[in-house]
Design a protein around this nucleic acid. Structure first.
Length: 433
RNA sequence: GGAAGGGUGGCUGAGUGGACUAAGGCGCCUGACUCGAAAUCAGGAGAUGUCGCAAGGCAUCCGGGAGUUCGAAUCUCCCCUCUUCCGCCA
């Protein structure tokens, strides 16, 4: 969440940045400031009363020691009155604080000054491209046709056993998916210096708040416990992304400066309810409820946040380069930025069978927005505490990568050529009927 | 799932209603001694919030929450978590 101090001191800048990202009507900076003013006023009143009570209580202790019980009893009445005032004011204060907290949790991050201004995804500029669209001597098939022909995915049975939006890889199709996962993990851990993590697939509500999924995207999350009320603490949610687990690894901790940067990498399935996306029903792998993803997360000193974002992007790009796929990188404009992000690059890979670019990675610097939500700090050499920048990026999403791979490497005879780097992982150089 | 016992500062560990302003030890920082270090001696040191130009003051913090009390690390209740034992289990 945003720092209230910054909101108070740079109010105009914050409002302008939030307006640029089309923050909704639910965000009201003036109201946050008003609540904060009310909080301060009430707080100092309560504190004066408390100081008073502490003082008198101490005096009572002394009187009791001297066995001056009458005098002590007199003073007790005094503190009882003060106590009543305190609990009344305290109640009011708690109400104000929870409103203030709720407003802050609903307020998205402020875009970095280098983020291009724009309203929608139409306004996202392309910042670089790699390779070019492959020319085919025949009409390339799309991945659904290829998967069915080559028996890589069984769409009918996936729907039968799990419903719409699930994938059932079979035979070489399954091995290709597993091979890709291993290739991605190996590349990031061995070549790029990330520490491999295998997190639980379910996390607590606190983690969902910390990462910024809640409260805004609560309806996107799957939970599998029934019969408990929604506010029950300890209730668990299926990961919408491994980011939700990785970013929370050090929640409520104070890291040492020399421990930074931390780089984590994890493969997990990702579960998304995609509420409200019904009807977007693209057949195949483009939009599903469960997909595999390898996620990268970094915890870094604030001064290095943006330098590390560029490196993170390069780490993700490297995957597509090694696989010989054509892609472009776009910089999300202010209006298209994710809730927690201050700056985001998307990587879009070319899928010839779809005749379109598919988003396979999103690399963001959330600055200290998430760290603040989850109470993650580090201690600087001079002893002061500081919120680190949290970065996350897909390295990459698997399902769409799979699409691009099949569609790019299809041959005139309907077979698929496996790129060199993947052959040890798949155990074959081509997939044919 | 059942039973019992724990959770105190960076770590260890004492504290069972009023000097806890959380002892002592270890580690840490500063200074003295030293050419320098070790050892020794002296001193210092938390977080959050808030008020203040500042010096500094005040409040809160002993796993979390609620309660009893004039006053809670300490008493009561609920929850989380760890350890051990039992049951179940890939």
């Amino acid at each position: 969440m945003l720092d209230v101090k910054v909101i108070r001191e740079k109010t105009e800048w914050v409002c302008a940045r939030l307006a640029a990202r089309n923050a909704g009507d639910e965000v009201n900076i003036q109201e946050i400031i008003a609540l904060d003013d009310a909080r301060r006023k009430n707080l100092s009143e309560v504190e004066v009363l408390r100081a008073n009570r502490n003082k008198v209580s101490k005096e009572i202790g002394v009187l009791m020691g001297k066995k001056q019980f009458d005098e002590a009893n007199l003073r007790k009445q005094e503190t009882t009155e003060i106590g009543q005032k305190i609990s009344d004011l305290d109640k009011k204060l708690q109400e104000i604080e929870s409103q203030r907290e709720a407003m802050l949790l609903k307020t998205p991050n402020t875009p970095h000054d280098t983020v291009p201004y724009g309203k929608t995804s139409e306004d996202n500029p392309v910042v670089k491209t790699y390779g070019e669209k492959k020319i085919f001597s025949f009409k390339p098939l799309n991945h659904v046709e290829l998967c069915e022909k080559l028996n890589l995915i069984d769409f009918q049975r996936a729907t039968k056993i799990s419903g719409r939006g699930f994938i059932l890889y079979t035979n070489l199709g399954a091995r290709l998916e597993r091979g890709l996962i291993n290739f991605l993990l190996d590349t990031h851990t061995r070549e790029h210096g990330y520490t491999e993590i295998q997190p639980p697939l379910m996390v607590t509500q606190e983690c969902m708040y910390g990462v910024g999924q809640f409260p805004k995207f609560r309806d996107q999350a799957y939970t599998i416990q029934e019969g408990l009320d929604a506010e029950t603490l300890g209730k668990q949610y299926l990961l919408p992304t491994a980011e939700a687990a990785l970013v929370n690894l050090h929640r409520d901790e104070i890291l040492k400066e020399e421990e930074l940067p931390k780089r984590y990498c994890a493969y997990t399935p990702c579960f998304r309810a995609e509420a409200g996306a019904a009807g977007l029903g693209t057949r195949g792998l483009i939009r599903v409820h469960q997909f595999d993803k390898v996620e990268l997360v970094k915890i870094v000193e604030p001064e290095k946040g943006y330098e590390e974002l560029e490196k993170l992007l390069l780490n993700a790009e490297k995957i597509l380069q090694l696989l010989g796929l054509h892609y472009r990188v776009i910089s999300l404009c202010t209006g298209d930025l994710g809730f927690t992000s201050a700056k985001t690059y998307d990587i879009e890979v070319w899928a010839p069978g779809q005749d379109q670019y598919l988003e396979v990675s999103s690399c963001s610097n959330c600055e200290d927005y998430q760290a603040r939500r989850m109470g993650l700090r580090f201690k600087k050499a001079d002893g002061t505490l500081c919120f680190p920048h949290l970065l996350n990026g897909s390295g990459t999403a698997l399902a769409r990568l799979y699409v691009a791979l099949l569609e790019t490497y299809q041959q005139p005879d309907g077979s698929i050529l496996i790129p060199e780097v993947l052959r040890p992982y798949v155990g074959t150089d081509q997939i044919k009927i």
